[in-house]
Nucleic acid binder design. Sequence first.
DNA 1: ACAATACTTGACCATACAGTCAATAAATTT
DNA 2: AAATTTATTGACTGTATGGTCAAGTATTGT
Lengths: 210, 210
Amino acid sequence: MARSQTTKKPTRIQREKTRSILEAALDVFSDFGFRGTTIDMIAKRAGVSKPNILYYFDSKEAIHKALLAELLETWLAPLQEIDESGDPIEEICKYVAQKLKMAQNYPRESKLFAYEVLQGAPHILPELEGDLKTLVATKAEAIAHWVAAGKIAKIDPHHLFFSIWATTQHYADFDIQVRAVLPDGKDPFATAGPFLDRMYRALLSPDPDS
Amino acid sequence: MARSQTTKKPTRIQREKTRSILEAALDVFSDFGFRGTTIDMIAKRAGVSKPNILYYFDSKEAIHKALLAELLETWLAPLQEIDESGDPIEEICKYVAQKLKMAQNYPRESKLFAYEVLQGAPHILPELEGDLKTLVATKAEAIAHWVAAGKIAKIDPHHLFFSIWATTQHYADFDIQVRAVLPDGKDPFATAGPFLDRMYRALLSPDPDS
DNA sequence: ACAATACTTGACCATACAGTCAATAAATTT
DNA sequence: AAATTTATTGACTGTATGGTCAAGTATTGT
């Protein structure tokens, strides 16, 4: 029995099944949350039996953890790309655009993350207080330099990031509300792009007097 | 047996108990979500037995619905106050400040709402597509007038609301993440206030050329 | 004081669900 | 093709939990 994490190298079937289970689990977890999801839902979605799922993962929680671990890497990638030597406003706007695209193309990941944080981040609090905090601190430093050099307006870098995360992920996490409120036929993402671009350019443009 | 919604007028005990149960339920639901909450948790929190809870409410779902119904009223109140005849930028900034204060003082309500919408708004979708949509349409109209009159910059009113909801509620819903990332000793709400005020003033200030 | 009504809860029931196990089937190795 | 290892699942177990019930206690009205 090569159940879940043995030290052996995975077979072809193991790799494929693991992937398809994670894929199905992401579907279900992002819709119903951890507690709202049953292993049977994941099994049905993946087209296998429940014991088969538990042959590849030790528990429901193990699947959840695996998803979150994968998630964090891709989720933070765009932030790393912010380049202090580039043009400040273009760098930030590029980041905003990237985050919005991610909300559009990876809404399941966004919602999984939202559930986790709402819950109090039981699984990823250490990562938030560790990797994320230091990464943000570094980038906040860069932005502080831009401010000090008068290249952008005097704004708090941390709250800048919070506002970007909030405004972009909102379109994934609160998708139902956005579509309920928006006039019929108006595409959320297509119209959000220009709005956010304009908002951050206005916010960051340095004061005339300085 | 005067179980839950009979047509009789409620006794003193009924009013008090109902309130204390809802209070306890808000605590627990906002922390663990609907599925993550058990009636026993609510009972323990409220200091009564489980059957006693079910004496006042027909089901766990009934408690949840009651909370959401209450919530929506208070939640939308600040939006109604936006006054087209007032100063545009001051009206919007007042709204932002009010929403931020609500996130600070009523984080449980914010999280309850977040869970509900993440879930796909199973209980309040009708209200979102009805009351909320029309209210937003009205206020969006007012903002469109301000834009047309050149009093504020050309921005999409709907996305303006989305960004305000996102940025303010973020501090309640993602509280754990905000505190994990923010440098020690820096108060989230105290520092968010000025940031958001500045952001929306920058966004809304009319272009010099127009 | 007495009755009637409102309130409270321990014990219970039925179901849902995470996780196990033994027995079978499919791959893979020899 | 036999042996071995890997994969698969039906049937099962134990527990958690939403909800009921009957039997008691407090409160209120007269």
